[in-house]
Design a binder for these strands. Structure first.
Length: 106
DNA sequence: GTGATGACGTCTT
DNA sequence: CAAGACGCCATCA
């Protein structure tokens, strides 16, 4: 199968365990493309809500989540993360120090 | 068919 | 230490 970068990104995001979050750069690096963080975000933006890819678990390096027009509501993504046990900082950002996904390959 | 854009991150000056 | 430029590739106009 023509393994497009997007397909590899989706596959990596799909491996994120519940209660953990990952950053774009992390997904890109695990997929074998350390400089393609931008494509990760763009790829996730094309994902339908019913996809097998938990795009709400993927956030930027700062722990901030996507703008409203991506999921429909910025609070919606935060709600899903809270439902999975993700911790947030007083800044309204995700506490990467506690909930960032740590791949076994590390 | 060409040009510009985009959930970002890392390297260099 | 901080700010700026580059990279990467698919989708939209």
């Amino acid at each position: 199968m023509h393994t497009s970068l997007f397909q590899q990104f989706y596959r990596t995001v799909r491996q994120i365990p519940r209660g953990k979050v990952a950053t774009y750069g992390q997904i890109a690096r695990l997929s074998g493309h350390p400089r393609c963080a931008r494509q990760v975000g763009f790829a996730l933006s094309l994902l339908p809500q019913g996809s097998d890819v938990p795009a709400h678990r993927v956030i930027n390096r700062k722990g901030e989540m996507a703008p409203e027009h991506v999921f429909g509501s910025c609070d919606y993504q935060r709600f899903l993360l809270e439902q999975e046990g993700i911790c947030f900082s007083a800044d309204g950002t995700v506490d990467l120090a506690t909930c960032q996904w740590q791949p076994q390959d590390a």
